[in-house]
Simulated scan of single mutants.
Amino acid sequence: MTIVMRDYPPMAQDFMNREHEDFANLLNAAEQALLMGEAALPHLNLLYDHCVKHFAHEEEEMQRYHFPPYPVHKAEHERVLGMFRDQLANFEATGDVSPVLEFLLETVPDWFGQHLRSMDRVTSQFLFQQKGDAA
């Protein structure tokens, strides 16, 4: 399932919108590589690395502005990174495309939409109230 960012509500923080757009592009590229039988591991690693950096950026902002539900949001990031690591490890060990493709086509887009509409929306609004729409 290709992610198109215009299908999702924008966040009140520009940095989140930019990083979410990058995520969507990397996810779509990884999906295409898998579907076309291309070398997908570099795409998957780029996607994972982006998630690590993006989550760290969000968490840094949440800590800087003392976002009360920070521990819950961070725990969700950790859970998702764990799922990514498991998928990468399985794909590297077996070369089986099916589980990682299902993960990218179904699990990740479902999670992404829910996460944007709930945790990220609340976080971005809180940050906006604290600091404005800063990058």
Rank of each mutant, 00 (worst) to 15 (best):
V52R: 07
K53A: 10
Y65K: 15
A93I: 00
F128C: 11
A30I: 03
L27W: 08
H54R: 06
D86G: 03
A39H: 06
T94C: 09
P69G: 05
F67R: 07
L88R: 00
A30L: 02
N90G: 11
Q129C: 05
H115P: 13
P68V: 04
I3H: 05
S98A: 13
G132P: 07
W111V: 00
R85W: 00
S118R: 15
M83G: 01
L81E: 12
I3N: 07
M16C: 06
A93M: 08
R79Q: 11
H20A: 09
L104I: 02
N45F: 06
W111A: 01
V4I: 08
Q114K: 15
A30T: 06
P10F: 08
L116Y: 03
L81S: 07
P99V: 00
P109M: 04
M16T: 01
Q125F: 12
A29H: 10
R6C: 02
A134V: 12
A24K: 03
L44Q: 06
T2R: 13
H50N: 06
E60M: 10
L46N: 10
V80S: 00
N90W: 05
P109T: 02
M62L: 15
A33T: 07
S118C: 13
Q114M: 15
F128S: 14
Q32Y: 04
A56R: 14
T94S: 14
F15S: 02
S118D: 15
L34W: 00
A75F: 07
L81M: 14
R18C: 06
A33L: 08
Y65L: 15
V52F: 07
E58R: 11
T107E: 06
H57Q: 10
T2P: 09
